[in-house]
Simulated assay, not measured.
Amino acid sequence: MDTENAHLPAGYYDVPANMLATIVTCLEMSAKPAPRPNPPAEGLTVERWPSPSLEEYRALYRRVGEDWLWVSRAVMDDDKLMAIIQDPDVEIHALMRNGERLGLLELDFREAGQCELAFFGLDKSLIGSGAGRILMNAALDKAWEKPITRFWVHTCHLDHPAALAFYQRSGFTPYKRMVEIFEDPRQTGQLRADAASHFPALHSK
C-alpha cells in the first residue's frame, strides 16, 4: 500500500478498546529563529548526558513522558535502545536542578543535514514554570550549531495541550499530519494503569 498517497474517506472509524488513535502533527524549520529570552532559571541548567545507563535513561523517559503515553523507549529492546543512546550522532541532554534530572532533550543528527527533536519533556512539576523555554532555547542553540538545514519535530494530541502552540512559537511550522494507531500501553502493563488521566483507557465490555 502506498501510504504517501493513501487517503481515508471522510467519516468515523471505530477504534478497538485496546488500541489508541492519535493525530500526529509534523513541524519543521529551515533556519534558526530569532532568540526568545529565557525566564529566570531558578537553579535550572541544561547539561549534556553523554553515557546514560538504560535504567537511568528509562527512568527519566518515564518521569517526563508516562502521563503523555510515551511508550516506545520504555518497551524497546535493550540492545536497540543502547545503540541509539550511545550513537555519536545522538545527543542527550538533561534539565538539571540540584543534581536531579527534571527534563529530557534528545537531538538526533543521524540523517545528514538535519536534526530531529526526538524527545523533549519536563517533569510535571515544571510545566508552566518557564522551564520549557529554557530547554527549547538550549535545543535550538545545540541543533543549529551543527551544519544542518532542517530541524524538525512531531507531536500528537496525546501530548500536553499547549505543546503544538509552544513549538510554533519556537519557530517550527506544521507541514504534515498523520493518524497513528497503536496498542494502549496501560492495558498491556507497559505503563501504569492510571497514566494519562486526560485520555482515559477504554475497557471491552
Rank of each mutant, 00 (worst) to 15 (best):
G132F: 04
D89Q: 13
Y167W: 14
E47W: 01
Q168K: 13
L105P: 02
E66L: 01
W49C: 11
P200R: 09
N137G: 15
V24L: 08
D2S: 13
P185L: 02
Q190C: 08
L105Q: 01
A83D: 13
L164V: 00
E180T: 03
V179N: 10
E66R: 10
P50Y: 10
E66Q: 14
S51W: 13
P161Q: 10
F119C: 07
D14V: 11
A41R: 15
L140K: 04
P185C: 02
E42K: 15
T22R: 14
M82H: 05
A131S: 13
T45D: 14
G128T: 11
L202E: 04
R133D: 03
L95K: 00
I84S: 01
W144T: 02
L54V: 05
M76P: 13
L107K: 00
L158T: 05
V90E: 00
R97A: 07
L54Y: 00
C26T: 04
G103F: 01
T149H: 14
N38G: 06
L102G: 04
D141Y: 05
A163F: 10
A193W: 05
V24T: 08
R63A: 05
K146Y: 02
E106F: 09
A143G: 04
A118F: 07
T188R: 03
I134Y: 04
V153W: 05
S197R: 11
L104W: 01
H7Y: 01
L81C: 07
S125C: 12
C156L: 08
Q114R: 13
L107Y: 00
V153C: 08
R62H: 15
V179R: 15
A163W: 09
G128C: 12
E91N: 07
L202D: 05
A165K: 13
A201P: 05
I127K: 07
K205G: 07
R36W: 08
T188K: 03
D184W: 11
I181W: 07
M82D: 02
V179P: 01
G121S: 08
H93V: 06
A195N: 08
R97D: 03
E145T: 12
T22N: 08
P161W: 13
Y61T: 00
P52W: 08
Y175W: 15
E100L: 13
G113E: 05
L117D: 02
A165S: 10
H160P: 03
H157S: 11
R110Q: 12
S197A: 10
I148T: 08
R62E: 06
Q168Y: 12
F109V: 08
E145L: 04
S72M: 09
P88W: 11
V153I: 14
M96N: 14
G99I: 09
R36N: 10
Y175T: 04
D78N: 12
S197D: 09
Y175S: 03
T173P: 03
P88A: 06
M76K: 10
L54G: 11
I85K: 00
K124I: 11
M178D: 14
F120D: 01
G130C: 06
L122V: 09
A195K: 09
A41Q: 10
P35I: 10
